[in-house]
């Protein structure tokens, strides 16, 4: 490991390996989610009350829950909800945040003032609490979870993008593009956006982690998908009530969340150091 105190310290190899590990975990989970019907042992809603609480075995590697449903199959299908919701929320929030943040940062004046006030107002609430309140009012469903989380999370993206745009628009290459006749849209899209993509991707990776925890939290509290849709949060909620009889019902969905969130955090962490080794 090079230890020079000036800028340009290389990212330690171990750090890079952790980043690849994170990406690997995420990739495996995406494959599990995509091919859930082929990977799952049985339909996650199949019940067999006679065998409930059954401990993990060769036929049911994660055991059976209080309804005698296969926990492995539920965890596999749960990956679909978690990744699907998180991807939707992060994509929508990125687009909204990128557009509003760019407008605020580039146009400035009252437009900036207005957008910043809205951002301040949303950030004044603890994020999860606002999402919880919104879902409580709108009624629990996957669609409403997505709506609630998008409404609360775009603000952090917009704030980040605005800051970057404010900083980048003074750069020589943007100013010279302007001098050569580039309009505002061209300046932003061709000259500013490519330079903030890295920061935004890092933010998205951490946001995926946060969104997965938030979505599972809402499902855990009974405010997520309907009971027929297997989610990690709902599975953990049913598991905690039968900790004594069947701890495996809590263990495996919990590990799944931990692993996936860790994957995104490792990836984001490594990528940040990779893009900007000076910062660490």
């Amino acid at each position: 490991m090079s230890q020079s105190k000036v800028s340009g310290r290389r990212v330690p190899l171990r750090k890079k390996l952790l980043m690849y590990l994170g990406a690997g975990i995420v990739l495996v989970m995406v494959i599990v989610a995509l091919f859930a019907p082929w990977i799952a042992i049985q339909d996650p809603n199949t019940m067999s009350l006679a065998d409930r609480y059954q401990a993990p075995s060769w036929t049911h590697p994660f055991g059976l829950d209080e309804m005698g449903s296969d926990v492995f199959s539920k965890v596999v299908y749960g990956a679909r909800v978690s990744l699907g919701v998180a991807l939707t929320v992060v994509t929508i929030s990125t687009i909204v945040g990128l557009l509003l943040g760019s407008v605020a940062g580039f146009v400035g004046r009252w437009v900036d003032g207005l957008i910043m006030r809205i951002i301040d107002m949303i950030s004044a609430f603890p994020n999860f609490l606002l999402a919880l309140g919104l879902v409580a009012m709108l009624g629990p469903s996957v669609r409403n979870v997505i709506i609630a989380m998008c409404l609360t999370s775009w603000a952090s993206y917009a704030r980040l993008v605005r800051g970057e745009v404010l900083h980048l628009k003074e750069r020589d290459y943007v100013v010279s593009a302007q001098a050569m006749g580039a309009g505002p849209v061209r300046q932003v899209v061709l000259h500013i956006w490519p330079n903030l993509v890295g920061t935004l991707v890092v933010h998205c990776s951490f946001a995926m982690a946060g969104t997965i925890i938030a979505e599972s939290g809402l499902s855990f509290l009974g405010l997520g998908a309907p009971p027929t849709t297997p989610t990690w949060g709902a599975l953990l909620d049913s598991g905690r009530k039968i900790l004594l009889e069947a701890p495996h019902v809590s263990l495996f969905p919990g590990l799944a969340i931990l692993l996936l969130v860790l994957g995104f955090n490792l990836f984001g962490d490594g990528l940040r150091d990779y893009l900007d080794p000076k910062k660490n």
Binding site: S216, G217, R240, L243, P247, I257, L258, V261, N265, L266
Partner: peptide
Amino acid sequence: LLGMSIPGFFLGPLLIYVFAI
């Protein structure tokens, strides 16, 4: 990183299982 990645609704039951049960 592990601590940041573990959600409270998993950590809680885990602590209950180990230290209470």
